[in-house]
Design a binder for these strands. Structure first.
Lengths: 218, 218
DNA sequence: GTGACAATAACCCAAAAGGATTATTAGAGG
DNA sequence: CCTCTAATAATCCTTTTGGGTTATTGTCAC
């Protein structure tokens, strides 16, 4: 047995709806021997499927994507595969997105305008179990948690399906339309919506739509 | 083959504030022998300077950039170097950006989510003097110009009262509640809401609520 | 294998929202 | 003075939503 320890490269899955951007990230990450890009996906849904199949160490995830956003995908994957570290790589500088990403289990938050070097450092860092945030982000988060410190008792997370339904509601679709899109009965949509309203302590779909928009789900 | 006519490659300048994205585009374009990337810039100001120096055939330009946006740069360059074709490559699906880009002289409008192949085709097409738009964009442009002819400019602004009603809608208030708050009849609230939906081309209050949240009204 | 939970679905009923039309009044601006 | 518009309001009718209840299935964890 050799005394040299051969490290297995960190496997990375890219989830972003822009093929061109993916290619850029791919080029940057592939230039580093400690990292290996094992797959790509172009929306949250595909991302979840790929993650299940590939079981990557790190997922680089965009937030704003068609079909299923990065936030929703993060919710799903955190529950399913807690070993897998999710690093948000997004254009959004909105505080709301940052808070939600962290709340839903992301291990880091990078803006797309970062330097190539930075992204490599971030991948290595989250792979090793650390969290990657800029100091200004960390400050924002601390302030946020302090201000809602004791209140957090009742908050229940939405299930993936509920998140999906909520998206369509926010886009102005009726229950019947949503049922048609998701191939389920209108009754089921109504049940989902009722559960959503109960969990969010809200009164009707318009209020829930506002919530969804603010959370960046649409 | 010595009889083959050797075409000079199309020279391309990339202007985008995301190094990672630039790298992706560079990789894609460099893989095609008919195209040669001759320079990169990370904002509109740098882009204009580089364009003056390099005189590229085609400029791939982002819209949202620090210092000087792609739209501003397009205005400057169109006046100075009309031979140089500008192709917007942006994340923005906003009609307004599309309209402005075309108005300011862009020869094409691509969304960043396009396939690599598409971007090569678009560069070749605008280099040859054609215009590159999706059919849905062309339709939007036509509709815009037609409606400018007869009415004042497409979107009608909400009246103050309508804005007020929309806020309450986004907060999840019912028509009856809004009527009570504003000391008007429920019928009037319904009229306001109908006018809001008509003006925004929306279908129901949930969709309007999403719009309000995105606009920062709530 | 039991218990928890997500997703599915059905039924009923009341309340709310949506769509169309018509009309009155107060102000602003020509 | 006349016109245009925002804001007000009513009536009629249809569709959608919201609220409560019950039940079946599949999966995952313990």
């Amino acid at each position: 047995m050799s005394t040299e320890i051969v490290e297995k490269p960190i496997s990375v899955l890219l989830v972003d709806d822009h093929p061109l951007f993916r290619r850029g990230v791919f080029a940057v990450l592939s230039a580093d021997k400690r990292i290996r890009v094992v797959g790509e996906a172009s929306n949250g849904k595909e991302g979840v499927a790929s993650a299940r199949k590939l079981d990557p160490d790190v997922i680089l995830m965009d937030i704003q994507m068609p079909e299923m956003t990065g936030l929703e995908a993060t919710v799903v994957l955190q529950k399913e595969m807690p070993r897998c570290k999710i690093l948000m790589l997004t254009i959004s500088e909105k505080d709301e997105d940052l808070f939600n990403a962290v709340k839903f289990g992301a291990r880091g938050y990078l803006l797309k305008e970062v330097d190539p070097d930075e992204i490599i450092a971030a991948v290595l860092q989250v792979a090793s179990g650390e969290v990657r945030l800029t100091t200004s982000m960390a400050t924002k988060l601390l302030g946020e948690f302090k201000s809602r410190g004791e209140k957090k008792g009742g908050e229940q997370a939405l299930s993936p399906r509920e998140g999906e339904v909520l998206q369509y509601v926010a886009r102005g679709h009726t229950n019947k339309e949503i049922a048609g899109t998701l191939f389920i009965s209108e009754n089921t949509v109504k049940v989902h919506l009722r559960n959503i309203l109960d969990k969010l302590h809200m009164k009707n779909r318009a209020e829930a739509a506002t919530y969804a928009a603010k959370m960046g789900l649409v």
